[in-house]
Design a protein around this nucleic acid. Structure first.
Lengths: 123, 123
DNA sequence: CCTTGACCTCGAGCGCGCTCCAAGGAGCAG
DNA sequence: CTGCTCCTTGGAGCGCGCTCGAGGTCAAGG
């Protein structure tokens, strides 16, 4: 079990140190991150795995407040798996609808691109 | 060539009247929308088609300022098609990279979902 | 004539998600 | 000891994209 400084954790996760502190303050993590005797944060592998999950949720557009709700459920321990599942399933639906929508808009843009390609260097 | 009130244009485009005025103010439209003698805006079919393009760009995540640049190019008329094309191609790349990233995060989330499904109602 | 309602302008305000700053402490190299 | 780097906290600030409110104009209907 290695333990990382905030700068190292930032590098590993792709977030900034500022953002890591912000997430912790805002209740997105499962617990307060442990401290070295100096008061500096020490991130464990488990912390990093959770932060990666948070990153996935964020990267797929889940709002901070929903991530916080999910974190709260996980923090509360066993017994609310159905609720966690519902939250994830509902998120998944939103994401899939949005993927489809973006895809269809992109195809329309591609059509426009094809028109310009023809105009700029006609085949 | 029908011409619509702002409320009708809002309904057609799925934007709010507030947003339509905001887009115009912010230079996202090709011209100021024409006015009835009363001073009320009258949207033409051409306006609506352009607004739909703006909507596609926005829906795929293009920042307002880039939409404004694109609008400026179109407004400037013939001769800059290569520039417009470059802008759209670069946007397309961004969108595709993001679609792929979201897709991959979603698959990871799906894995988590599968775990919870097993826990909640084991097959 | 008066009300209603759709629209106008200008400018402020808001929610989100960070992002940064000031002031200070710990620890290590030279 | 000096300087340097990395870290701490609390709170302010910012960029984005709307969103809304105040106060006014205008046309139609009762």
């Amino acid at each position: 079990m290695t333990s990382l400084s905030i700068a190292e954790a930032a590098e590993q996760t792709g977030l900034t140190a500022h953002t890591l502190r912000y997430y912790e303050r805002d209740g997105l993590l499962l617990h307060s991150v442990e401290r070295a005797p100096s008061g500096h944060r020490r991130y464990t592998d488990e912390d990093l795995r959770w932060i990666q999950m948070v990153t996935r949720l964020r990267a797929t557009g889940m709002p901070i407040r929903d991530v916080r709700r999910y974190a709260a459920l996980v923090r509360d321990g066993d017994g609310n798996e159905a609720e966690r599942l519902a939250l994830l399933l509902s998120h998944r639906e939103v994401v899939e609808r949005q993927l489809a929508e973006v895809g269809s808009h992109l195809r329309a843009i591609d059509h426009k691109i094809a028109l310009y390609e023809n105009k700029v260097s006609p085949a």
